[in-house]
């Protein structure tokens, strides 16, 4: 009973944090709108009560078309990366594992690079192929990682999968670098902007595009949170509990990869969220995945909304790439994790 209370309390705090960050990011942005104006601009879009709100078209566009999609996408991508990071760390029993471990980043990067270099006018198409190419790239690279890992030996052995991931990432990165080297300066700039990640041009279409993937993945990961705790004691011990470690591992990896690929396809490669947030939660709530996974979803979303808030306000009216902000916060944190990782896992 006491444990449940503790868990509920942690979830309550996390929910308050998320709501607080969302309200803060929506109302204190550089647009300098009052809290009332922001609530009215959002209220206009609410069913039944919308008619009662009056707001200028400029304010409405600012809040509803530019700020709110960024916040919603930040919540989704942050939740996805943090929970996938936590899941990867649990599966591979490695505190420094992140969602990009099995080649998602290099595959998505190659997919995006191909579109940016060979289809430079794709942004003007009615259907933007960039997210699709990044998504496919990510999926292909992870499938190759699995195939290579299996060929190298035993997929049940996590280290052969990790090594296969490193090899595939190196190969895809080499192809990407080769393509970049043969492109123009402007295209290289586009590729780097994508690699650094951004929510700057987020629209509602991006939110609806990844929403199903994120919801599905998050549901699978949360439902398997207890099994992740069992995996932590080792494959043989897990077997004695009646858990088939390799099956659990494959389902979790597949779900986390699918969700990460979807998130990356619209936001680019936002680093460190998948490492910072789960470790922060371990420090707060302990090593059990029963708490880490739900809290990763909430704190991950909140953290990315906060990081994106900094990205659009620190040098306003200029934008700072989101990846720079998360890495700026993440790098010092990484050192702390390295120093304390013995206690954490």
């Amino acid at each position: 009973m006491e444990v449940t209370d503790l868990k509920t309390r942690h979830i309550l705090y996390a929910a308050i944090f998320v709501v607080g960050v969302v309200v803060f990011a929506a109302t204190t942005g550089p647009a300098q709108l009052s809290v009332l104006q922001v609530f009215q601009a959002v209220g206009v879009h609410l069913p039944f009560v919308g008619k009662d709100f009056h707001v200028s078209s400029l304010d409405e566009a600012l809040v509803w078309q530019l700020v709110m999609p960024r916040i919603c996408l930040g919540l989704l991508v942050g939740a996805m990366l943090a929970s996938a990071g936590a899941a990867y760390q649990g599966v591979f029993l490695n505190p420094l594992a992140d969602p990009y471990l099995l080649g998602v980043a290099s595959g998505a990067g190659l997919g995006a690079t191909i579109v940016l270099i060979f289809l430079p006018t794709a942004l003007s198409w009615s259907f933007n192929p960039l997210p699709l190419a990044a998504f496919l790239g990510a999926i292909v690279s992870v499938l190759l990682t699995f195939a290579l890992g299996k060929a190298a030996g035993n997929v049940r052995n996590a280290s052969s999968l990790l090594l296969a991931g490193i090899a595939i990432a190196a190969f895809f990165t080499a192809v990407q670098t080769f393509l970049q080297q043969r492109s123009s300066v402007g295209q290289i700039q586009d590729v780097y902007s994508w690699i650094l990640g951004s929510l700057a041009t987020a629209g509602w279409s991006d939110v609806t595009l990844i929403l199903p993937y994120v919801v599905l993945t998050v549901l699978i990961l949360v439902s398997m949170r207890r099994l992740l705790d069992v995996l932590a004691v080792g494959d043989i011990e897990a077997q004695s509990f009646g858990v088939k470690a390799s099956t659990v591992r494959n389902i979790i990896i597949a779900a986390a990869t699918l969700g990460t690929a979807a998130a990356v396809s619209v936001s680019g490669l936002i680093g460190f969220v998948g490492i910072i947030v789960p470790h922060m939660i371990r420090l707060i709530a302990g090593p059990s995945y029963k708490r880490i996974l739900p809290l990763s979803i909430l704190y991950g979303g909140g953290f990315l909304v906060l990081a994106d808030y900094l990205a659009r306000t620190v040098l306003y009216p200029e934008e700072v790439p989101l990846g720079v902000i998360t890495a700026f916060l993440g790098a010092p944190f990484f050192l702390v994790v390295l120093r304390t990782s013995k206690r954490l896992v």
Binding site: P30, L58, L62, L66, V67, A200, R312, Y316, E318
Partner: peptide, 12 residues
């Protein structure tokens, strides 16, 4: 510079 879309709207 890389500009913020909100700023573009606000500057109109």
């Amino acid at each position: 510079p890389q500009l913020n879309s909100s700023y573009l709207l606000k500057s109109n």
